[in-house]
Amino acid sequence: MELLSYDFVQRGILTGLMVGISSALAGVFLILRRMAFLGAGLSHAAFGGIALSMVLGVQPFLFTAFFTLLVGNLVQLVTSHRRVPGDAAIALVFSGGVALAVLILGWVKGFGEYIFGYLFGNILMVTREELLFTSLSFLIVLIFFSLSYKRLVLLSFSEELAKLKGTNIALMNHLLISVSSLVIVLAIKAVGIILASSMIVIPSLTALLIGRSFLSSVLISVGVSVLSVLMGIVLAFYYDLPPSGATVGAMILLFSLAFLKKSLSS
């Protein structure tokens, strides 16, 4: 295939697969833990992190990953004591991140074009450095979900039962948020800040609609995500479309098919 002969396409496909699998895994648990909106909140908080990294002149991906991880854990901390409702805290970091970015962009001129790439992402413009960062993050995500799978399923079922079985709920929530923050930063490279949360939500939602068991739902979520990323890259390459829009469009198409199947069978 002509497509695969290009270095940038190979990097894009590899990155897309890793981002797709990571976000699909995180998405299932975030939705079942009623934290679906977290993806949108953190990706917009990350916007502030990206703008800040430009001013500070540091590596944007690494800095944004730490920034998002910090914000995510702060959200978890203030909501765990039930002083602030979870959705309100997420809305706060959502607007806070955008406000920070707008302030910085207004103050420091000349970053407009640079920031555009982060807003809409482009998986076909992944650098070798970013591929390495994605690979390491992917490894962390895989290790976390392999080791915590049973605990996370029980936690999604009943916090009280999970607690009785020795799960530290607060620690597990912080770990899930931390890993999800990392996944969000990866998704930003693939589809951009504005569409990053769709990588978390749409494949998982599709899977939970038609999955007949927990494991099959996780596998369907991964399948939908990977297929959408590949469809997005192919469409972008041959029809000169933005890969982020094509990827999310493919996800919505697969969700609609699943919804139709579910509606017809019930």
Binding site: I31, L32, R34, K150, V153, L154, S156, F157, S158, E160, L161, L164, K165, L208, L209, G211, R212, S213, F214, L215, S216, S217
Partner: peptide, 26 residues
């Protein structure tokens, strides 16, 4: 040494686990 049956689960309406999967957790 203690088995507990909670009053409410508060589980999401699309929670997909089967009986076998739930038993295998414990």
């Amino acid at each position: 040494r203690i088995g507990y049956v909670p009053q409410r689960l508060g589980v999401e309406q699309n929670f997909p686990a089967t009986v076998k999967e739930l038993l295998s957790l414990v």
